[in-house]
């Protein structure tokens, strides 16, 4: 399993052709209390940069963009009832979607953990 990070503060964990995607601890910290997460249905085809999900905090709505091309295979239904899980365990139980990896080449443009840590230091 390899985990990648995007500049939009998503994590992408790839294992056997399936990518699990969520938002980073940094992102949830910036958002504040999450009150609602809108997720795509399984079967939805996404291109890199498409709006994949929306996270609503008390303050505002924020879009989550697809970091790679692929098809949604599963959305995390737990978040419908427990959106606050995004604040508690953003990089674990509160994953957003699982999707196929449509274009492996796009993974190369993402950051590894060390690069992402260095990146958020600059913000």
């Amino acid at each position: 399993m390899t985990t990648y990070y995007s500049k939009d503060h998503e994590w992408i964990s790839v294992e056997g052709g399936t990518a699990t995607i969520g938002i980073t601890a940094y992102a949830q910290e910036q958002l504040g209390d999450v009150v609602y997460v809108e997720l795509p249905d399984a079967g939805k085809a996404l291109s890199q940069g498409d709006e994949a999900a929306v996270v609503e905090s008390v303050k505002a709505a924020s879009e989550v963009y697809a970091p790679i091309d692929g098809e949604v295979t599963e959305a995390n239904d737990v978040l419908a009832d427990e959106p606050a899980k995004v604040n508690e365990d953003p990089e674990g139980a509160a994953w957003f979607i699982k999707m196929t990896v449509g274009n492996e080449g796009q993974l190369a443009d993402l950051m590894d953990e060390a690069a992402y840590k260095a990146y958020i230091e600059t913000l």
Binding site: G32, D33, V35, S57, V58, K59
Partner: peptide, 12 residues
């Protein structure tokens, strides 16, 4: 300040 350490929900 839009919020402090408690966060908007906690402050509310």
């Amino acid at each position: 300040p839009v919020q402090y350490k408690l966060g908007i929900m906690g402050e509310h």
